[in-house]
Nucleic acid binder design. Structure first.
Lengths: 236, 236
DNA sequence: GCTAGTTATGGTCATTCTGACCAAAACTGA
DNA sequence: TCAGTTTTGGTCAGAATGACCATAACTAGC
């Protein structure tokens, strides 16, 4: 950082190359149960190494953009989406992540809202997969997704993250379904409700959601900061 | 990551260079009160930019080492120390962190034990400073240290990190002093004790610490994993 | 040897938080 | 109008937390 690499005696071939990748989560109904579950878009590799396998969207860091801008851009380029939440996940720099060259990847994770997610581009080489049923991915991307899922669970239990997977208005039951999908366990509706009612960022609206064959639930709104990175020091 | 940079049309001058830095915390007695406080070693910059200012220890990433090895090495090289805890903090990649060139820094934070910290090398260009009373540092290093402190506080309140600032044997009061130093507030000795006694990783030894002018406290030992990175999924 | 000073250690008590559970309210569809 | 469903409000026991008190066990100084 302080020594320009020209001054360093141990002058290896080329410096490790730097890439940005993103793990993008969205809620989609499961085909079987219809309940919302976590999905993420992957891109098919069209060249070696790992040609034909699916991989996280990503690309090299362009010279004139910040890390977060790069993540945001490659999210938009692969899926056409704008994230409602975006945070740095981790920098992966193991020696043998790529068989051909040394690559350091700075990985971001993002949440997108279901209205957006529905419009997402899909094609021969871009497709959505259930986060908990992934086949073998290129590079170390399975491990990266696992780590992203772990982070999501953690952020959820402390945090303010769940609402970024939902639209502007939502019922408390929808929030609970997000928790249940991510944490993969059932939660007591009444107790869950009690907790949400205690958090000040969740605002009651006058509206109700019609159309179910049961008592219509009240709609709520989330009022709270999105959360950019080291600046956002709310939850660990 | 997937596209070798030779294939990319937008071929900028040089790729952003990659550096590793470390924020190293150790406990030292404050000159005034004698109570333990947080200190960290800095190195003086001997060339532009920011020549003469103090900065975090760091350097370029060598081709054949992992990110963590690089952090560990530059910790050893500047202070002669081996960390008892080492974790990735964040990748800083803002466009204007360095006035001369684009640099992406992957920053680690470390804890070292006081026995080690006492032997640490100091010289004209390497010196220890109180973490809460830093002057203006080079680059964005003040912000990085602030973020590292915030992370330390967070890890502490959930976590298992405090013991890595202490030696192998310690009294409960010493642990409390760590918490008080890091969180910067007083804690009730009896309540704090009650909590520590409830955590299974803290083991009673038969020994007592003699020498104080009061009832001799029992010595304890910490039994728990150090905690390497995305593999260590205990606390958020 | 006795006493004052200091910290360690064990305990109480009221308050808050949590999980399990119950029951009424309010809609739809038949 | 009734059965079915989810929403919503509530109780109750147990766990965890913070404020506080009292005794234990050492040292230093007289």
């Amino acid at each position: 950082m302080y020594y320009s690499s020209a001054n360093v005696s141990e002058r290896q071939a080329a410096p490790p190359s730097l890439a940005i990748s993103t793990v993008i989560f969205a809620l989609r109904p499961s085909e079987s149960s219809g309940r919302p579950t976590l999905w993420l878009p992957l891109v098919r590799r069209i060249r070696e190494p790992f040609k034909g396998l699916w991989a996280l969207p990503g690309g090299p860091l362009s010279h004139a953009e910040s890390l977060q801008d790069a993540a945001s851009r490659n999210l938009r380029e692969t899926t056409g989406l704008a994230p409602s939440y975006l945070e740095q996940l981790y920098a992966f720099g193991g020696l043998h992540r790529s068989p051909t060259q040394r690559v350091v990847s700075i990985v971001y994770w993002a949440l997108v809202q279901p209205t957006e997610a529905a419009l997402a581009d899909e094609s021969e080489n871009v497709r959505w997969f259930r986060a908990d049923r992934l086949a073998e991915l290129a590079f170390d991307h399975n491990a990266i997704v696992d780590y992203a899922l772990w982070r999501l669970r953690n952020k959820l239990t402390y945090g303010s993250v769940a609402y970024h997977l939902l639209g502007e208005y939502f019922t408390l039951a929808q929030v609970r379904e997000v928790y249940e999908a991510v944490l993969d366990r059932q939660l007591d509706p009444a107790n869950f409700r009690r907790q949400l009612k205690a958090t000040p960022e969740i605002e009651e609206t006058g509206e109700y959601l019609q159309g179910g064959k049961h008592r219509p639930p009240r709609l709520y709104r989330y009022t709270g900061r999105p959360g950019l990175d080291p600046d956002n020091r709310s939850t660990p």
